[in-house]
Structures are given as structure tokens and as C-alpha cells.
Computed example of a mutant assay.
Amino acid sequence: MKKSIAFVLIGILLFSCKPYQNTKIRKDQITYEDFRIDQRTFPTDDGIIKYIDKGNGPAIVLLHGVPTSGWLYRKMIDPLVKSGFRVIVPDMLGYGSSDSPEGFEIYTAENHAKRLLQLMEGLGIDTWSHAMHDAGGLWTWELMKLAPNKIEKLIVLNTIIYEDGFYPPVRMKPGKLAKTAMWAYRNGVTTNTLLKNLFKQGLKENTLNTIDVEGYKTPLLEGKTDAMYYFFSQTCNELPDYTDIFENIDIPVTVIWGIHDTMLQWPPQQRRASNALKVKEEDIHFIDEKHFLQETKAKEIVYKITAFLKKKV
């Protein structure tokens, strides 16, 4: 009897751990259902990728990380379109609305890069500007290794560059324990706990509401955890060395970084990263936020990206 009561209490605690603080809905706020309606479908060799393709003009890719999706950029898409850009926002395989095929090696950084190249080729886009966040940096470095002349300008948003400054919220060893954790994430047992901790660590103040969180929570409850498993149990435990890629970078680069980020810290890698990416001092911008700066500083980021992309080289 006591055990049953204990399990009930634990269940109540887990399920009542809301990952949002604000219940007020913003004016004209997009829902996750509407966001998905805007997404298009592209069949890669490994599965279907969903993506946003809006606007006319020079193309810019907005690439998410782990465990997010293109939803992270929802507040930036229309403003960039109004600024004259064609905005491409993919959900990488295993995330968001895209397929989540069984297997793990399919989710290597190199395979993510190959699929992104397939998407851009399918869209008839030969070169583009490119913004990436979090693990999107790893997929970007792999893309630049495979196709070094595709990206014309690079926007670095709190992304993985070096081991220095990289403090992921989750690091796991491959095996049963990690797989059990993924099972709990996708079956609603610890989904709220994961997201609550993520936003607590990733935002100075969690101002998200139920609609905001829906876009992060829904894919998890739909079973999108194999790609997460690979990242947290493999990729983030042994980061590749991309020194050779950095040495060959010869394009304009800007850094827009949430300076209070505890998961991806700029100061420990500042000199090394600045020199490697050959970024000018005036193109390094610090934002008063933590990791998920797209959530609270979308207007400021869009302004800085637009200014950078329209600046004469």
C-alpha cells in the first residue's frame, strides 16, 4: 500500500512539473499546428525532412540543434522574409516534424550534413548564408568539409566549436540507462522535467507559455528520441576536431552569442574561436541572454543578421 502511494506521489510530481511559467498567450502567437501546416516535405535517402521555405531573395538557412527543431526560429522567419530573404528552416532527421527512423549511426553529424545538402540541392539553391545554433554547428562543420563552397556567409549563434566552454546539460554512456531515459522522455514520464530544466538553464527568465512549449514537447511525445540518444551518448562525449575546416574558412563570419549561456560558454574559447573563424571584432555581438536567445531576443538577432548580410564586404 505504501509503495502504491509513493508511486502515485512520484507520478503527480513528475506530471505536474510544468516546463512553462507564463499562461498568457501573446497577440498573433503562432501555434505548433499552424507552424506544421507551413512546413513542406522533402524525401532524403534516409527519410522525410520537413522544412519551412518562405520569401524571395538571397537564401539563408536557420539550423537548430539538440533537442530543438525549426520551431526555435519561429519568431525570426517572417521578419527575415520582410527584410528581403528567402528563409529555409529545416527540421533535421529525428527532430521536430521530420521522420525518426530506427537506428543510430544514421544520426551522425556527417549524415545530417549530407541530408541538408540533399535538401538544398533539391530546392535548387547552390549557395546560401547560414545560421546555426547548438549542435547545428557540428552539422555545419561537416557540411563545410563535404562542400566547402556552399556557404557564403556564416552566422554563429551559441553553437559548438570546441570542447572548451562546452557543458551540455546531459551526457550519457551508450546502453540501457540512456535508452531508459529516452523512453521516459517520449512517454511523458520525465518529458516536462527535461524541458523545465532545459529552459531553466537556457533562459535568464522562463517566460514561455503553453503554446511555446508545445512545439518543443510534441515531437518528444511523438517518439523523436533516437537522434537525441545518439547525440547525448555518442557525439557530445567525443567532439570531432574541426581545425582543418576552420583553417580553410574564407567567408564573412559573425558571432551573435547569448553571453550568459552556461551550456555553451564563449569566454573559455574566445581567442581561439575568434582566430579560427577569422571573425572581425566588430562582427562579434554579445546578447543579454543565455542559450535560447531566439526565444527572447529574436528582433535583436534579426536586426544584427540583416545588417551583417547586407553589409558590403
Rank of each mutant, 00 (worst) to 15 (best):
M144V: 02
T262R: 09
Y185A: 06
A307S: 15
G124H: 08
I161G: 11
V253W: 01
W257I: 04
L143A: 14
K311I: 03
I249P: 01
I12G: 14
F35Y: 15
L195N: 02
V213I: 15
T23F: 12
V81I: 04
I125D: 05
K75N: 12
L198P: 02
F231S: 00
G122A: 12
F286Q: 05
N56A: 14
M182S: 11
Q294W: 00
P67F: 08
S129Y: 12
E281V: 13
K145C: 01
T296F: 00
N192L: 02
D288F: 00
L198K: 03
T243R: 08
D244S: 13
G103E: 03
N209L: 00
M1Y: 09
C17S: 10
F104G: 05
N149C: 02
E33C: 00
R40W: 01
Y162N: 13
D34Q: 15
L116N: 15
K27I: 10
I211N: 13
A307M: 13
V213Q: 03
E281M: 13
F231W: 12
Q39R: 11
W128Q: 10
I5N: 05
W257Y: 07
L220K: 00
I249F: 06
K153P: 01
I256N: 02
P79T: 06
L62C: 11
E282A: 14
Y107S: 03
W141D: 08
I52Q: 11
I301S: 01
R271E: 15
D212Y: 04
D34P: 06
